[in-house]
Design a protein around this nucleic acid. Structure first.
Length: 555
RNA sequence: GGUCCUGUAGCUCAGUAGGAUAGAGCACUAGAUUCCUAAUCUAGGUGUCGCGCGUUCGAAUCGCGCCAGGAUCACCA
């Protein structure tokens, strides 16, 4: 907000310069205003003079001087101006500008940091989408948290968000699941059994078999089909998955079953439509989609010679349904192993006449687990993987969520179990949460002393002049921008880093300055600082909440 | 071989539309607590930003070419 105001001032000075013939309009929109890295270089700085220098063939410092003269006319925000380095104009703002941030925080309250830039646009975030063959693995965990955090950020910036989980409980994988379950069931009853070669070896299959035994006794021994086994397995695994998601605080608006696409004829109609457009042909008994028409290296099979579709076809049909359901924007969160499917789906959508740019795919890299400094080997087949549930048992939902959000999607994520389990010093989750708890503690103390939280209108905010206080005010002021940019770039980690930095500023301040200390701190200063504390608590609370983390009052 | 991602301090990683002397946490060392929670703070130092060339006032950031690691290239999903 402060940046926006300053931008207006700078822009109008730029225009004034144009109308006075000091420079041309060429640099419009090319220059920027940013926060300098180092102290002493102002609250903000602009590179306008340097951008212009190249275009106008003039000395940047001359332009900077002219710009400074124009900016000097402002007396609302600007305290001081300096020309530095190769031609930066450093802008120092009045302290009052920062002190007034507290007003904004109090007025906005729980909404501070949120915005309406999304303008109510309907966005679907599809994530997790694991088929019910077993418990959620660590990789799913990352995706679940990443997707949910992106959804939360979009909600915070004014989008209307719909969370969807796409799954398929049919096909070969389900047969194998049923066969595995039957084998375990027979094993439990001491009968002969044959475990499928590529069967699911996890302990959870045994649990499912036990549940079946409890409900059905030995009545399924003579069962010819695999159906009751598959059904039970799917039922229990799905219950397990949704309870894991619930533990992580994730609630989907809808679970979309691939079946729907067949039952309602969407698969057939996609094929028909592509056929009508001449983009489909028969070869070797299979049906091929001419993806080469869309710049791909080779065509792809969409219906096998067995008559079954490959995964591409339902994926395309599913995305078409998303469009038909009227979403303005569709975000898919996938693991990097899905990379090959993306171009095929996009080609399908293009072929069907949809604007594929409304689909954004976020691919995240893998997760590795380390423990005692060594990488934990994970294999689903051998069931040596760590499930999200087990992880939650070990570290709890806040820590799990925090760690999964700590890296940008493009980076591989190393999950250090030792660090995550630590309840002391080095755990960044507690560092941030402790910041909030400390603020609560001070406010409790204020109440105990019947000090009461002072009325903002009566407090003299001009008493907040310590460098650490200005730093905290600045940091708070940037919160809405951070949330907006994190949402825009679908990058929750950036909001998390903000909270860690805010916590750092706050812990330093806490150790250096007293808020409540009748002997050394004047009451009027305490009042002002209590306002600062209250506002800080609000920012911590909002930030933690937007990311789905809890904000404990005490620790 | 094609496509995508990654390569920044001993380790794990930030670095938003190219900006000034490249940052944080961990680890290591030494200190800080009569009083708002020491799950905290303060002070110590490290870098050919994988390599090379180019674009320009200016490159970790953009382009091209290499090198290394990961993912993926089914009539599996």
């Amino acid at each position: 907000m402060i940046l926006e105001q300053l931008k207006k001032i700078v822009d109008s000075c730029f225009k004034q310069g144009v109308s006075e013939g000091k420079w041309s309009n060429k640099a419009a929109g090319k220059y920027s205003i940013e926060v300098p890295k180092r102290d002493g270089q102002g609250d903000y700085s602009t590179n306008m003079a340097m951008v212009m220098a190249g275009m106008e063939k003039k000395n940047p410092r001359e332009i900077a001087t002219a710009l400074v003269e124009l900016l000097r006319a402002d007396n609302t925000m600007i305290e001081k101006l300096e020309i530095a380095g190769p031609g930066f104009v450093n802008i120092f703002l009045k302290k009052k500008v920062w002190q007034d941030v507290l007003q904004q925080v109090f007025i906005a309250g729980n909404d501070f940091g949120k915005s309406t830039v999304g303008n109510g646009k309907r966005v679907m975030v599809e994530f997790v989408s694991a088929n019910p063959t077993g418990p959620l693995s660590i990789g799913h965990g990352r995706q679940a948290i990443l997707g949910d955090a992106i959804a939360r950020l979009l909600e915070a910036t004014g989008y209307s968000v719909y969370r969807e989980y796409y799954f398929n409980d049919a096909g070969r994988q389900m047969r194998v699941l049923g066969q595995s379950t039957r084998a375990r069931y027979l094993e439990l009853l001491g009968k002969d059994f044959e475990f499928p070669e590529d069967g699911y070896q996890g302990e959870y299959i045994v649990d499912i078999a036990k549940a079946l035994q409890k409900e059905q006794g030995d009545s399924l021994v003579e069962e010819e089909t695999v159906v009751p086994f598959t059904e039970k397995a799917v039922e229990l695994i799905f219950a397990d998955i949704s309870s894991t998601l619930k533990r992580m605080g994730i609630i989907f608006d809808n679970y979309f079953n691939e079946h729907t696409l067949y039952d309602e004829g969407h698969i057939d109609s996609v094929v028909q439509e592509l056929r009508d457009k001449g983009l489909v042909y028969q070869k070797n008994g299979a049906v091929w989609f001419k993806t080469t028409e869309f710049g791909h290296e080779q065509d792809r099979v969409i219906i096998k010679k067995t008559g079954e579709p490959t995964y591409r076809l339902p994926d395309i049909a599913y995305h078409r349904e998303k469009f038909k359901r009227g979403f303005d924007w569709m975000i898919d969160i996938f693991g990097s192993d899905h990379i090959a499917t993306v171009p095929d789906v996009m080609a399908g959508l293009k072929a069907l006449g949809y604007d594929h740019e409304k689909v954004t795919v976020v691919l995240h890299q893998f997760v590795t687990l380390t423990r005692n400094g060594k990488q934990v080997k994970m294999s689903t087949r051998k069931a040596t993987f760590v499930t999200v549930d087990e992880l939650l048992d070990i570290v709890g939902p806040d820590v799990a969520r925090f760690y999964f959000m700590m890296r940008k999607a493009d980076s591989q994520l190393e999950f250090d179990l030792d660090l995550a389990m630590s309840e002391e010093k080095e755990n960044p989750v507690f560092y941030v949460q402790y910041g909030h708890a400390r603020l609560c503690s001070i406010l409790r103390k204020a109440e105990e002393l019947e000090n009461m939280i002072p009325d903002l209108q009566k407090v003299n905010l001009a008493l907040l002049t310590e460098p650490e206080e200005i730093q905290l005010l600045k940091r708070m002021a940037s919160f809405p921008e951070v949330i907006e940019s994190a949402a825009h770039d679908l990058a929750p980690h950036r909001a998390l880093f903000f909270l860690m930095e805010l916590a750092g500023d706050w812990h330093s301040y806490y150790n250096k300055h007293k808020v409540i200390d009748p002997e050394h701190v004047e009451q009027v200063v305490t009042d002002a600082r209590l306002c600062l504390v209250k506002a800080l608590r609000q920012v911590f609370k909002n930030g933690l909440e937007i990311l789905g983390l809890t904000a404990p009052d005490r620790m």
